[in-house]
Design a protein around this nucleic acid. Structure first.
Lengths: 204, 204
DNA sequence: CTTTAGTGTCCAAAAACTAGACATCGGCTC
DNA sequence: GAGCCGATGTCTAGTTTTTGGACACTAAAG
C-alpha cells in the first residue's frame, strides 16, 4: 500500500494514552501495596491486562515508569494548587501560604508519597530519587505552571524575581514533603514568608 | 505459536469501548448538525479518526449506529430518572410524577431528540423509528431498570402489577416525548395518576 | 559456585486497522 | 426508462500494534 500516510494519528494517540493510564494505574496499585522494590514489570502487565512486552514498548524501563508515576501525581497536585492560588489573587503571601499548606497536608496523606517515603527507609529509594536527586522534571514542570499562573495574577513582580520565588517555593515544598518539621500550617507560613521576601514583595 | 489463547480480553475490551464511544460521539455531533439523512458513514469515520471499514467492523450497518445512539441517550436519561425516583421513595405517585416530569422536560431540550423530531418532519424518520415502531429495545431496557428500581422501593405491589405499571409509564412517556400536549408538568401529573391506577395503588 | 528471579531485547505470529476496489441499490436528470 | 451519481455494505491485501515465547545479562540467596 506504499504510503499509509495515516494522519489518522488522533485515534491511535487516544488509545496510547488509555494504555499509558492503565499501566500507571496498575503500577500505582502495586506500589502502594508492596512498595517499589516489590513491583514486577510482569505484574504491571498482567494487572493492566497486556503483555509484558507492551509495557516495555510503552515505557522502556522500570525507572521510566517510576518517573511517570511521580509526574502524574505531581500534575494532580498542581490542579489543586492552582485552585488555592486562585482563591487569594489579592494577596500573594496568603496565596502561597494557602497553596503550600494544601500541598503539605495533601502530601502527608497521599498513598503514593507515603509508600515512597516509608519504603525508602528500607534502602528502596529508586522512586524517592525522583523527588530528590533527579527532581529536575518535577521542578521544571511545577515551576513552569506556577510561573504562568502567578505571572497573570501578579504582573507587578519582575519576571526574574517571580521565577526565583516560584522555584524557591517548589524546592522548599518538596523539601518539607520529604523531611517534614512540625505541622503543615507552620511550615506553610514560613515558606510563604521566605517566598515573599525572595520576590521582593511587601510583607503582610 | 500454536495457541495465543489470550484471556487478556479486558484491555482489548476497554479499547473497543473507547472506539465505540468515539464513533457515537462523532455520529451525535454530525446528526445534531445535519440530521440523520445528512449523516455519512465516511464522515463518522473521519470525524472519529478511523477508517470507514473500522466503522463497519464495529457497527455493521448505519441503522445499528442509530440504534446505539438512541440507546446511549436512553441510558443517560435513566440515571437522571433513578435519582428523581429516589427522591420520593415514600410516595409512588410523587415519584412517578417527578421522574416523568424530569424526563419530559429534559427530552424537550435534548439536542439529539430535537434533531430526531425536527428532521423527521422531512420524511427522514429512520432514527425516529427507534422511538416508535422499533422501540422494543428501548422499552425493554427502561422497563427492566425501572422494575428493578421500584421493586426495591415498593415491595407491597404485586410483581405483575408493577411490571404493567412500569411499562405503561415508559410507553406513555415516550408517546408524550414524540407528541407533546401541553406543559411537561401537566402531562407528568396525568401519566403519574394513570400509572398509579394501573398499579392498583391508592391515589393521593 | 550454582541457582534463582528478575530486567531488558529480539523476533515470528496473531489481531486490529487501513485504504483501496467492487457489487448493489435508490434517486435524479434527461 | 436509460444512464449517471452517490451512497451503503463487502472483500482483500498491506500496515501497525500487540502477543508470547526465547534469550542474554545481572544481582542476590543459598
Amino acid at each position: 500500500m506504499a504510503a499509509t500516510v495515516t494522519y489518522v494519528t488522533e485515534y491511535r494517540e487516544s488509545v496510547r494514552s488509555l494504555l499509558k493510564e492503565r499501566l500507571l494505574d496498575a503500577a500505582y496499585e502495586l506500589v502502594t501495596g508492596n512498595g517499589w522494590a516489590g513491583l514486577r514489570m510482569a505484574h504491571i502487565a498482567t494487572t493492566a491486562g497486556v503483555s509484558r512486552q507492551t509495557v516495555y514498548t510503552e515505557y522502556g524501563t522500570k525507572d521510566a515508569i517510576g518517573q511517570a508515576l511521580v509526574m502524574r501525581e505531581v500534575e494532580r497536585f498542581l490542579t489543586g494548587i492552582a485552585q488555592h492560588l486562585d482563591a487569594h489573587r489579592d494577596d500573594p503571601q496568603d496565596a502561597f501560604e494557602a497553596a503550600v499548606g494544601y500541598t503539605l497536608a495533601a502530601a502527608a496523606e497521599n498513598p503514593l508519597l507515603k509508600s515512597i517515603l516509608t519504603s525508602s527507609r528500607g534502602g528502596d529509594d529508586d522512586l524517592l530519587a525522583h523527588l530528590t536527586t533527579r527532581s529536575e522534571p518535577l521542578i521544571d514542570t511545577a515551576s513552569a505552571m506556577l510561573e504562568a499562573h502567578t505571572g497573570e495574577a501578579w504582573p507587578q513582580v519582575a519576571a526574574a524575581d517571580r521565577a526565583l520565588a516560584v522555584e524557591t517555593a517548589v524546592r522548599l515544598s518538596v523539601s518539607h514533603i520529604v523531611q517534614p518539621v512540625g505541622p503543615p500550617e507552620v511550615s506553610a507560613a514560613r515558606i510563604a514568608l521566605a517566598v515573599i521576601r525572595v520576590a521582593r514583595l511587601p510583607e503582610r
